[in-house]
Amino acid sequence: MAKPNPRTTDALAAIGTFMAAQQEAGYACGTVRLRGTILAEYLEHTLNTEKVASLTASELVQQERADAWFDAADAGETRRRNTLTGPDAAAAHDSQRARIQTYNAFVDYLSLPDLHRPYPASGHGDRLEPEQAYKLLRTLAVRRPTGANAATAIRTAAVAALVAATGRTVPQLHQLNVTDIDMERRPIPVVTVADFDHPLDKHTVEILRRWLDVRAGITQALEGSDPGYLWIPTKPGRERAGVQPPKPGLTRAAVRTLHAAHRSLVLQVIGVPLRPYALLPRR
């Protein structure tokens, strides 16, 4: 029995078969999930705007409807969560690029390549302006979502503060030890990264002191064997194959752990899973 033509099927059903095809093609789960979310936004916006109950896939992707959706998304009208610059802020450059990539992949799936939209030039990503970065750091330092681990939250704020203060990435800051931070340096405290001293502002020093206090509480259980890593796990890991994990403080927190904690906390606090990269100053 011949498969139904996806162009003539209901748009919602076509989106479902498109996502299944993307999975079968080997795309990452995160990519497939994101594309499904974007296409659901497109369909919902179009149905609500035109006040119709359904559309076929080929009707959905017509240029006029796509134009209306992109314009609405660019103006922030399809946003479901707030942002650092308010609910009415324009869409981030890379979010619009993701919409275009998804739309083009969908029209390819429908065998309608003539509807392709040109890709915008690559931007800086979701890079924050200095004022936005400062506001985010202040928010991370004082707000802890319900159910979030307090130690992980302040560690995340400290990592983010050092990214912003030094212009270094998380992998570059990963190897820091406690002794690399000199809070008593006069006239300005510094952190030494790759033999270079970075001055620390008062706010960053405050966050780092809080993390060091929390860290000291965690490493007390090591009974004098603290190796001095700046970033340590905030709780024991899972038992693997019957082997107990090392106590927090005996190993460094992994780069992926620091990244994941940052994305998770920022998502809970402001509704956008910004990477630490967003805090790096523009060159």
Rank of each mutant, 00 (worst) to 15 (best):
P4G: 10
P6R: 11
T8V: 14
T8R: 15
A11N: 07
A14K: 02
T17D: 11
T17P: 12
F18M: 11
A21M: 05
E24T: 10
E24H: 04
A25N: 11
A25S: 15
G26N: 05
R33E: 13
R33H: 12
R35W: 08
R35Q: 15
R35V: 07
R35I: 13
T46K: 07
K51Y: 02
V52S: 05
L55Y: 08
L55W: 05
S58T: 14
V61L: 09
Q62S: 10
A68T: 13
D74Q: 13
R80F: 06
R81Q: 15
P87I: 04
D88I: 04
A92L: 01
A92Q: 10
H93W: 09
Q96C: 05
Q96P: 00
R99K: 13
Q101F: 02
T102G: 08
F106K: 04
V107N: 13
L110Q: 06
L110C: 00
P113W: 06
H116P: 01
Y119H: 14
Y119G: 06
A121G: 12
G123C: 06
H124Y: 11
G125F: 01
R127E: 06
A133S: 15
L136C: 11
R138I: 13
T139Q: 14
A141K: 02
R144T: 15
A150S: 14
A150K: 08
I154S: 04
R155I: 00
R155G: 00
A157M: 09
A158Q: 12
A161Y: 10
T169G: 00
T169M: 03
Q172M: 13
Q172D: 12
L176Y: 09
D180M: 03
D182V: 05
M183Q: 11
P187V: 03
P189T: 10
V191R: 05
V191K: 04
T192D: 07
A194V: 03
D195N: 12
F196L: 10
D201R: 11
H203P: 11
E206N: 14
L208V: 11
W211A: 05
D213W: 01
I218F: 04
I218Y: 03
I218K: 02
A221L: 05
D226S: 05
D226N: 03
G228T: 07
G228R: 09
Y229N: 11
I232R: 09
P233Q: 09
K235V: 05
K235N: 02
G237F: 01
G237K: 00
G237H: 00
G237S: 03
R240C: 02
A241G: 05
G242T: 06
K247R: 14
K247T: 10
A254V: 01
R256Q: 13
S264N: 06
L265Q: 01
L265R: 01
Q268G: 03
V269Y: 03
V269T: 14
I270E: 11
V272A: 06
L274P: 06
R275M: 11
L279Y: 02
P281E: 09
